[in-house]
Write a protein that binds this DNA or RNA. Structure first.
Lengths: 299, 299
DNA sequence: CATGTAATGTGAGTTTTTCTCAACGGTGGT
DNA sequence: ACCACCGTTGAGAAAAACTCACATTACATG
C-alpha cells in the first residue's frame, strides 16, 4: 500500500480550520496557538502542492481543492471521533469484576460495598467469590484481591494494599477462661486452621515466642477446614481457637463475637490487588487507593 | 467540541498493525522500525487505558476492544486515503493554463509547444493569449508569462526566466540600403513601435549612444501600433524599422525575414513567469526550468 | 532438549517535528 | 486615521517520534 496519507496532524488542523472558517478558532479548539495551526495548514498545502484556503483579509475561504478535501476529510474525522467515543464509552461502562476469597468477600468487602459504590460510582464494581487460586487472567475478571507472598507473579500487575496480619481468635467464652492462665495454656484448647494456610499457626506462634513442639502436639488434636469461611464459623461457634487474618475477622472483633487477646503479627504475605492485563489501569489504581484507605483507617 | 481524538499517528500505527496482524509488517509499511510502531501502539493503549492487542507469542491478536476500534478506524482511514488520493488526482490532472502575450505566444511559444508537450507531458500545458495586463489572479489561469520590470508584484510568485533584450529590426530590403550609410541614418526610416512600450526606442537608442533629439524628431513621423503583433507585421511588410524584444522576432531573424544589424541591448525588464496563488509550485518550477533552458539554448 | 529464528518489548540517546513567543502586515470597522 | 482583529513568519524551546541495541518470549528444528 502506497503511503498516500498526508501528515495526519496537519489534516486535523485543516479540518478544524475549514470547519470553523478561522485559524484562531481552530487553534482554540485544538488548544494550541494560532501560529501552530497556521504552520500545519501550510505544511498540508505544501504536501498537496496547492493552496487550500484563500486568505481573504479577515478570515479564510476554502479554495476549490480545499472544499473538496474538507468534504472527504470531515466525514472521515467524524467517523474517527465517533469510533473513539464509542470505544471510550464501552471501556468506561464495562463493569469492573473483582474476584475475592469468599471469606474476605463476605466478612470484609461486602459490608463496605455500599460505601464503595457511593465513593467510586464510576467503577461499577462487581465483586464475586473466587474459589482456590485467584487468577485475573480469566477473561471475565478484571482483578483479584488476595493474600499472596512474594515473589509476585510476573505476568500481571500487582498492587500492594496492606501487610497481612494474622492472629489467634476465639469466641469470648473460650478467651475468658484463658485470661487467668499462662499464655501457652492456649495450646490446651482445640486449635483450628485452614488447609490452605498450614504455616499460619507456626508463623504466629514463633513470632509470639511460643514453643514449637508444644504447638505441634496441640495441633494434633486440632481441626483443619477447607475454607477460611468454615474455620470462622467454627470459631464463632466456640469450637476452639482459630488463626485468621485480622482483616477478615475485623468485624467480628468489633461486634464482640470474637476476641483476640493474644495480638496479631505480620506475615511475609501482603493483601494485593492483582490486575488482569487489559484492565484499565486507572480503575485499578482507583480501587487500590480506596482499598488502602479503607484498610488503614477502619481496620 | 471535546478533544476526543486520540493521537492520530498512534492511530495510524494501530490501524496498520491491526490490518496486517503484525508490528513488524506495519513498521515496514510505514517505513519505520518495529520499535516505533510498538511504542505508538503502547501510547494508544495508554490513551484508552485498555489493551488493544493480545501478545500471542508469534504475532498479535486484537482484543475485543481492539477489534471494535479497528472496525471503525479502518473505515475512516480508508475514507481519508481515498479523499487524499482523489485530491491528488484532481490536482495533478488539472491542466496548467498559461497566459501569454499574443505575439510571444504566436512567434515563440507555439513553435515550441510540440517539444514542450513531449518533454513535459505531465504538465498538460494549455497556452492562451492574454490581452493587456497579464493577471494570473484570474481564477482560470495558473500562470502568466510576461515581460515586466521591477518591482515585482508582491501578491504572486515571480520566477525570472531571462533578461529582456530589445533591438531594432527591419525587413532585409530596408536594412540593405542602410548598410553603407552611417548608424544614425536609421532615423531617416519610419520608426515603428507599440503603444504599450513607448520607452523602448529611447532605451535602445540611449544604450547605443544615439542622439536623443534626433530620435524624438524621427519618431514624429513614425507609427505606433496597438499590439506588438501588428508592429511585427508592419516590419515584415517593410513599412519601417521596428523595435522589439529579441525573443519574439527570433524566428524571423533565423528565417531571414527580418534582420537586426544594429544589435540588441538589455532593458531593466525581465521575462517572468507569474504564478497564481494556489498553482502547484512543482508545475511552475518545472515550466520555468524548461523555459529558461529553451531561451538560453535556442535563443 | 538445546539451539536457532522470528517476533515483540524496552531503555537511552538522538533526531525531527511541533509549538510558543514575539513580532509583522494587511483588513475592516469606528 | 486609528484601532482591533486575524493570519503569517523567524527563532528558539519543548515535545514527540524515531533509531539502535539488547532483552525476552514462543515456536520450529536438528
Amino acid at each position: 500500500m502506497l503511503d498516500s496519507l498526508p501528515p495526519l496532524n496537519a489534516l486535523k488542523a485543516f479540518e478544524a480550520a475549514a470547519r470553523l472558517g478561522s485559524v484562531t478558532a481552530a487553534a482554540q479548539e485544538l488548544s494550541v496557538t494560532h501560529g501552530a495551526v497556521s504552520r500545519q495548514i501550510r505544511a498540508l498545502e505544501a504536501h498537496f502542492d496547492t493552496s487550500l484556503f484563500e486568505r481573504a483579509g479577515r478570515g479564510l475561504v476554502l479554495t476549490r481543492y480545499g472544499r473538496q478535501l474538507h468534504a472527504g476529510v470531515s466525514e472521515a474525522f467524524t467517523g474517527l471521533r465517533a469510533s473513539c467515543r464509542a470505544l471510550n464509552r464501552e471501556i468506561e461502562g464495562a463493569p469492573f469484576t473483582l474476584a475475592c476469597p469468599g471469606s474476605l468477600l463476605a466478612r470484609w468487602l461486602i459490608p463496605r460495598l455500599d460505601r464503595l459504590h457511593r465513593e467510586l460510582p464510576s467503577l461499577r464494581l462487581n465483586a464475586l467469590a473466587s474459589d482456590g487460586e485467584p487468577d485475573p487472567r480469566r477473561g471475565d475478571i478484571s482483578a483479584a484481591l488476595a493474600f499472596i507472598a512474594p515473589p509476585w507473579p510476573s505476568d500481571m500487575e500487582v498492587i500492594e494494599i496492606a501487610p497481612e496480619t494474622i492472629g489467634a481468635v476465639a469466641a469470648p467464652g473460650i478467651a475468658e477462661r484463658l485470661t487467668t492462665r499462662p499464655f501457652d495454656a492456649l495450646f490446651d484448647e482445640t486449635l483450628l486452621d485452614t488447609a490452605s494456610r498450614p504455616q499460619a499457626w507456626p508463623q504466629w506462634a514463633h513470632a509470639c515466642g511460643l514453643d514449637d513442639d508444644a504447638l505441634v502436639r496441640a495441633r494434633q488434636s486440632g481441626q483443619s477446614f477447607e475454607h477460611l469461611y468454615y474455620l470462622l464459623e467454627a470459631a464463632l461457634a466456640g469450637l476452639g481457637v482459630a488463626i485468621a487474618p485480622r482483616l477478615v475477622i475485623e468485624g467480628d472483633l468489633q461486634s464482640g463475637r470474637l476476641v483476640a487477646p493474644w495480638g496479631f503479627v505480620d506475615t511475609d504475605a501482603r493483601l494485593c490487588l492483582l490486575l488482569a492485563r487489559g484492565t484499565p489501569r486507572q480503575s485499578g489504581e482507583q480501587l487500590a487507593t480506596w482499598l488502602r484507605h479503607e484498610v488503614t483507617t477502619r481496620a
